[in-house]
Amino acid sequence: MSSTMRPPIAPIGWSIALHAVLAGLLIFGLSLPKRDEQPVILPIDAVVVDDAVLQAAGRKREDDQRAEVEARKRVAAEAEEKRLEEERIEQEQERQRAEEQAKQEAEQKAAQKAKAEADAKLKAEADAKSKADAKAAADKKRATQEKHDRDAREADLRAKLEEEETRTSAGFQSLKASYVRAIQAHVEQRWYEPPGVAAGLSCTIYVTQIPGGEVTGMRFGTCNGNAAVRQSIETAVRNASPLPAPPEPSLFEREVELVFTPKEN
């Protein structure tokens, strides 16, 4: 994940650099047989040697043997000096090479370090990102879970609401209305309405039924009817047991409120 997320410039850049280095090595490596005989350093050595040789030749003309010995000595010394100088140069070169190498190594190291750092940074970034991603994922998951829970709750609620809506829906209402009508007709057919009760009678009785319609209990609510009216209602309800079954089972209610409100004749 993290590697794929790295910018594509980096490997291409490194590739180009590597190719350039290799091309350079090939070119210079082939033209220069030895790394020691570097052209930059040799001319400087030649100049220094020439001056010393010219001065030594002038003095040779004035003195013969001694001069020759001295010259030889000097040459030897100079040779020694030259050797030393060369040694020194070589050392210097060596040092420079070492330095160069060190430098290169350092650069390499630095580059490596930089790379490492970059990598580390990238990695850190990646880690951070992945961590962030993980966190985000976790958050998302949690959010998803929460959303799911909420959705579930809402769905549950909605289901109840839909049930409620269903209860109020036209189809359900018509079923309910037919159930109500069935109970109404069933009770009305069994109610002997005492003479002269019609005017203003309003009598509520709460009837408890069990599935199957069997009436298990009844209690009067508000009722302005006299004892005979109550008796007639109680008898009607008793005779109405079992009450008709609902056209749809969910319509069943344990308690049915019967409101006796006869219309005027």
Binding site: Q184, V256, E257, T261, P262
Partner: peptide
């Protein structure tokens, strides 16, 4: 609303013709 859910049926007339 669930607790008060019950069926209300209006009885508008006694159809039984005699006791």
């Amino acid at each position: 609303s669930q607790a008060s859910a019950q069926l209300t049926v209006q009885i508008l007339r006694g159809m039984a013709d005699s006791v």
